[in-house]
Design a protein around this nucleic acid. Structure first.
Lengths: 134, 134
DNA sequence: ATACATTGCGCAATAG
DNA sequence: GCTATTGCGCAATGTA
């Protein structure tokens, strides 16, 4: 069914012994016999287990990667929203500043309520730019 | 080498014909013959190509996913830095505000230069909070 | 009913 | 000398 497969390099001298053994096995197989050497079967079984472990691992890693991508996407959206909100706060504050300076330059006011409405309408968002001021 | 493998369900009636063909093939194989029907070999070859296409596709997808993860990580860092910078700008502006208000409440000043240094030292960062003012 | 796509699995080569 | 990883073929199954 399957002749000895070669993938990349040469017989690699250290494996000559194995090769010989396998040659024997292949010869037997060619004769219709099954290389049911206990050692062979044992090695096959162990390797099959290893292969299945590797595959399981890989699947879990794929799942983890998917989760990671999803998490990163969420974090990203949240950060973008935060940037947006901060920028609105900033421009709000700046307009406030401008309105204040303008008023100050016009009439010499020493008003007790130093704040004026900014030029633009009130900005949305739950955060009050002055929540940290007093 | 390989007896007819069963994975999941029953013979599934619609495949009886196929099953019969394959029975024949397996019988031949059991006798040491190779089911070298042209059609069989052809189907195997086509399937092998399909399998290789699928595997190639999967690998490319894995690469793309890695790239995506890396890209998202970068975007994330950039956004975090931006948030940090905006927050510094904001607290700078707020302190400026406080200092101004304080001075205003003390002496009735109609100074031409309305800005004072904030209480804290100058904040780092390339952005000038007032770059958009005037 | 026919062809391609996807998946689970075993084998052998090779890497570590 | 062992397990881990990889490329590949096979057969079952999914999909259209």
């Amino acid at each position: 069914m399957s002749a000895p497969r070669k993938r990349k390099s040469e017989p690699t001298p250290a494996e000559a012994a194995h090769a010989a053994q396998q040659e024997a096995n292949f010869a037997a197989m060619a004769r219709g016999e099954i290389p049911e050497n206990d050692e062979y079967r044992l090695k096959r079984a162990r390797n099959n287990e290893a292969v299945n472990r590797t595959r399981q691992k890989k699947k879990e890693e794929e799942v983890n990667t998917s989760v990671k991508v999803e998490t990163l996407r969420m974090e990203n959206s949240a950060l973008e929203r935060k940037v947006e909100s901060l920028q609105k706060e900033l421009s709000f504050l700046k307009e406030m500043f401008m309105a204040y300076a303008k008023k100050e330059n016009g009439a010499a006011s020493t008003s007790q309520q130093p704040m004026q409405q900014p030029l633009s309408g009130n900005l949305p968002g739950p955060s009050n730019p002055f929540s940290s001021l007093q």
